[in-house]
Nucleic acid binder design. Sequence first.
DNA 1: CTAATATAAATAGCGACCTATGTAAATGGT
DNA 2: ACCATTTACATAGGTCGCTATTTATATTAG
Lengths: 157, 157
Amino acid sequence: MTDWNLFDRPAPLVNMASRSFLRLGERRVKPHGFSIGQLPVLYLLRDGKAMSQRDLARAAKVEQPSMAQILARMERDGLIQRTPMPGDGRSQLVSLTKAAKAKMPAARKALHRNQDHALAGFSAAETATLLDLLRRLNRNLDRMVAEEVEVGEAVEA
Amino acid sequence: MTDWNLFDRPAPLVNMASRSFLRLGERRVKPHGFSIGQLPVLYLLRDGKAMSQRDLARAAKVEQPSMAQILARMERDGLIQRTPMPGDGRSQLVSLTKAAKAKMPAARKALHRNQDHALAGFSAAETATLLDLLRRLNRNLDRMVAEEVEVGEAVEA
DNA sequence: CTAATATAAATAGCGACCTATGTAAATGGT
DNA sequence: ACCATTTACATAGGTCGCTATTTATATTAG
């Protein structure tokens, strides 16, 4: 009665959409030797830039161990290389290999073809509204996630 | 330039929101001995109903192996039980244990407290709009996922 | 009634995340 | 200089999901 349909609330709808995006994206990008989680890294390092793991994690908005795993797989697949960070023995600079850079344009195109098919039937205004509402939703969620961590830590202390 | 901000497109925004919802939901529900992926099962079997794995997967909109894993963990944790399906030796009827049913109300309350904090600052109309746009987005995505599977299979044949 | 096919689960293996913890290299205050 | 803290990564372990494949039981066609 209260939730007559399991999926007719924000969290499940968002979750479904996310899973679909991931499935579709994976199909597009996999034939080119990439996978979805690597896209932020590819994007961030695209024109020869080099960054630390920490900065990559921050910029991609994932936790450090998640980024570590992504980078491990990318290294395994010959997509990145690491060089020591000058002046800090703890850190390394990560950059794309030539192979990765060579394969990017095709993958990019494949994704572009895919992208925004999802928004078929949406007017420009509706698309803008959706993006705006999602940004606001994310602001709320980010705050909630952060707050709870604080609480958690406060309890510990 | 084209995508000046990595996250300012539908897929990443939806993905971020989904991850945040999952993190928050997990925190709420874990102390009660459940986890997020189990919620559809709990919901579907709530008042003593019994269903096959196949029907649970369909209703929860996940693939069969995903549901198999969810059920395996729920069985491990004493949340479900399986009884043979009368008249079909391949299948079993899944139902909630007393323990699971006993723990549900508290978990439900915990989630409710959480829920829709996410929509703080949203007017009723905005919430409705968001839900509507997400439903439409999902319709598109579902179609795309289904189409591609067809294509894939057609190529094989 | 048997052979081919379809269906229900199980299994193997992978990717994207997370939390919690450990380790080694800076850094900062005394 | 020295010890405590912070910081950057690494590692262990877990959940959610997917694809591909196998196994066992129905079902259907000939």
